[in-house]
């Protein structure tokens, strides 16, 4: 059964995956371009001073901050909007698998794809910043991206849960909550400010559980 769900989610997500992978390559190319531009016009030494002292690198890799959010949002929409349109989700509930396992596997599979995109972006960025900057800067830059990736994951889980929720009133309330929670991951203004991430990880880790409540309400036919 799991294989079948995997196949179904793959069908829904494959174009999205490809587009995001393309955007990742473009973002990394943009970062390389920006880094080279600044090094060219500031000179390598001054550029390093701006990168080290004024967090310039965070500006040059700005798409690494935004892309996980876009990815999370896109994957949630691609996976669950078709299911909710015309109440198609009801068909899935006739499958010989409990609704909870069905929803959790869908979200889990979607998250695996999201994680793949994030890893692609992460290692790409590693490569990009290693060309021009010393290990210390690379380490700080990579550490700075971890909260962004958590934020992207949060958006994925929260948007999935909002789409699966049948009532619009609830969706609006959840939307506000989702905004407040996601903002938590984008509060840094310099490198590696999130020194203790465990609480932030825990908050994301419990998020997948929320979809079951929405699914349950859908099953009960709440509008």
């Amino acid at each position: 059964m799991l294989k079948a769900i995997l196949y179904k989610e793959w069908i829904k997500l494959r174009w999205g995956l490809l587009v995001i992978a393309g955007l990742t390559v473009l973002s990394l190319a943009y970062s390389i371009g920006m880094i080279n531009y600044y090094i060219e016009f500031q000179g390598a030494f001054s550029n390093w001073m701006y990168v080290i002292g004024k967090s310039l690198l965070l500006k040059n890799i700005v798409f690494v901050k935004i892309l996980p959010l876009i990815t999370g949002l896109a994957f949630a929409l691609l996976q669950f909007v078709p299911e909710m349109a015309g109440n198609r989700m009801r068909l899935s509930y006739h499958l010989p698998i409990s609704e909870k396992r069905l929803l959790l596997s869908s979200v889990g599979i979607g998250f695996m794809f999201l994680l793949a995109e994030i890893l692609f972006l992460f290692f790409g960025l590693w490569l990009v910043v290693s060309i021009n900057y010393p290990a210390e800067v690379v380490q700080k830059a990579l550490m700075s991206t971890l909260p962004w990736f958590l934020g992207g994951s949060a958006i994925y889980f929260l948007i999935s849960f909002i789409i699966l929720e049948p009532s619009w009133t609830y969706r609006i309330i959840y939307g506000i909550v989702a905004y407040g929670l996601t903002d938590l991951y984008f509060r840094a203004s310099t490198y590696d400010q999130y020194q203790t991430l465990w609480a932030f990880i825990l908050i994301v880790a419990v998020m997948p559980l929320t979809v079951m409540y929405s699914g349950h309400r859908f099953r009960r036919g709440i509008k």
């Binding site: 929670l181 419990v206 559980l209 929320t210 079951m212 409540y213 349950h216």
Partner: peptide, 10 residues
């Protein structure tokens, strides 16, 4: 459990 997770997020 799912409901309480949502409550806790709120």
């Amino acid at each position: 459990l799912s409901r309480y997770v949502i409550v806790l997020l709120i």
